[in-house]
């Protein structure tokens, strides 16, 4: 582990104090978590006291399907190994939708002065209506990043002056990077010669899994 990262961790601990929910170092990168309520305060401290003058990236993460694989080898032993693929995206129960800590907003900060980086995570409290404070006032470049996170995940940024969709089409419905949004989408578009205009229809293709998602843990090798 690099000494510079350990030093940074200590400095961050001192500066943020009780506002810091967790702080860990993995792969020489420091990841900290702050609460939604204290986020703005913490970010201001990070910028002004620790010199993180640049917001390199801001993005959302949806933890809905985290750790789920769609191919269980153990279950299929008696019936042989089929390509029986379990599509967990369609198996939505309500409590999953309501899960806490479903969405995260991840900030990557860079200090040009001290040449170091930190990753900050903020978990909005409600999965049905995730709200975090906008950081535009701290880093102006957050404007489009927040619009994108809103567009892709439906995360609301309180205090954003112009929270419009940015990457998807005009009039698009849904938030495409959410885990319960299918890869194929919901609608397809074609030009209708009779009507003389473009029409939207429900998708006609089915989602197909070519390579199943498998999780293998190094410590417990699978028996083949």
């Amino acid at each position: 582990m690099k000494q510079s990262v350990l030093d940074l961790q200590q400095e961050v601990n001192q500066t943020l104090g009780a506002d810091l929910l967790s702080s860990e170092i993995a792969l020489d990168e420091l990841t900290i978590e702050v609460s939604v309520e204290k986020a703005l305060e913490a970010f201001t401290k990070l910028r002004d006291e620790l010199g993180f003058e640049q917001l390199i990236d801001l993005c959302g993460v949806d933890y809905l399907d985290y750790g789920q694989a769609n191919w269980e080898t153990m279950k299929a032993v008696n019936s042989g190994f089929s390509r029986g693929v379990f599509d967990f995206a369609e198996d939505e129960s309500d409590d999953e939708q309501q899960m806490e800590r479903r969405f995260a907003v991840v900030y990557h900060l860079l200090s040009i002065e001290h040449n170091r980086r930190v990753r900050v995570k903020v978990f909005p409290s409600e999965a049905a209506m995730p709200i975090v404070d906008s950081v535009i006032s701290i880093w102006n470049c957050a404007n489009w990043f927040e619009r994108e996170a809103f567009d892709m995940f439906g995360i609301i940024f309180k205090g954003h002056p112009d929270l419009r969709r940015i990457l998807t089409d005009y009039g698009f419905v849904g938030h495409p990077l959410r885990k319960d949004f299918p890869l194929t989408g919901h609608v397809e578009m074609r030009y209708d010669a009779e009507k003389g205009r473009v029409v939207y229809e429900p998708v006609s293709i089915e989602n197909r899994v070519n390579v199943p998602r498998v999780i293998r843990k190094k410590s417990s090798p699978q028996t083949v």
């Binding site: 390199i56 993005c59 985290y66 750790g67 694989a69 990557h108 470049c141 498998v214 293998r216």
Partner: peptide
């Protein structure tokens, strides 16, 4: 920015494109 949950596919892959904040300005 890559998040893996131990699978053979990324759990989340985020591309930080340099042009994005440039155009935003």
């Amino acid at each position: 920015y890559m998040v893996s949950d131990g699978a053979n596919k990324p759990y989340r892959m985020r591309v930080r494109a340099p042009g994005f904040p440039h155009l935003a300005s």
